[in-house]
Amino acid sequence: MTNTMQSNSLAIEVTDLTVAYQEKPVLWDVDFNVPQGVLLAIVGPNGAGKSTLIKTILGLVKPVAGRILVLGAQYQARKQLIAYVPQRSSVDWDFPTNVLDVVLMGRYGHLGWIRRPSPKDKKLAIECLERVGMADFAGRQISQLSGGQQQRVFLARAFIQEASIYLMDEPFAGVDATTEKSIIELLREIKKSGKTVICVHHDLETLKEYFDWVMLLNVRRVSLGPIATALTPENLKRAYGGRALFLDQKGDTRV
């Protein structure tokens, strides 16, 4: 329904955004526009405000100043169209529930208050689990999952939201190489269908291979754009400061 309506608008539009925790600025006067249909990595050193940026877009953190538009409107009006994948470590995996139940939680936004998931929602949850190769685990207690399996469950939970924009906080943290490859395959699939994927990312080595757009962030926005133009050695130096990090012609990084 929304695709034609928003085909011209930007996925995310941020103007003069400043966020502070206890008077200490975490994000300082950040401006950027993200077009629809890109696979964007947000990179920067620890404490650069990457997670905070995602949380501010989602309305979880209140900015001191600035304006954020999602698909041309306030977040509240667009929340159905945004899927959020928090850091895997942000939840208690010993919580008494199973895989199917966690995936169904992604459906709660569509259901609204009080209404319960229907058999149709459950069917959809199984389909999403199939997409991430976890259908056999539907009834499994979540504490029995490996790190990679947990991340796949979180992805399935995001898919069931049928969103236009996917905001992910370090989806590759603590997963093995095989899972990483299959996750990036899934993200490319999402992108191919015209949707926008924004990931907080840590690994500069895989950046060029996995993403097509990048934002370098260190409290201020350093650069944003297609990898070829935004990921220059000067920009990297500006983002990571004096910390010895070199990017040679081949794109290898050493720390």
Binding site: K55, K79, Y84, P86, S90, T97, M105, Y108, W113, R116
Partner: peptide, 21 residues
């Protein structure tokens, strides 16, 4: 009445907030 909401807000408060709960 609020079983679903309590479950989500207990397991993943950030998602609960993002979904408007």
């Amino acid at each position: 009445v609020f079983y679903k909401e309590l479950k989500l807000a207990t397991f993943d408060p950030a998602l609960a907030a993002a979904l408007g709960f």
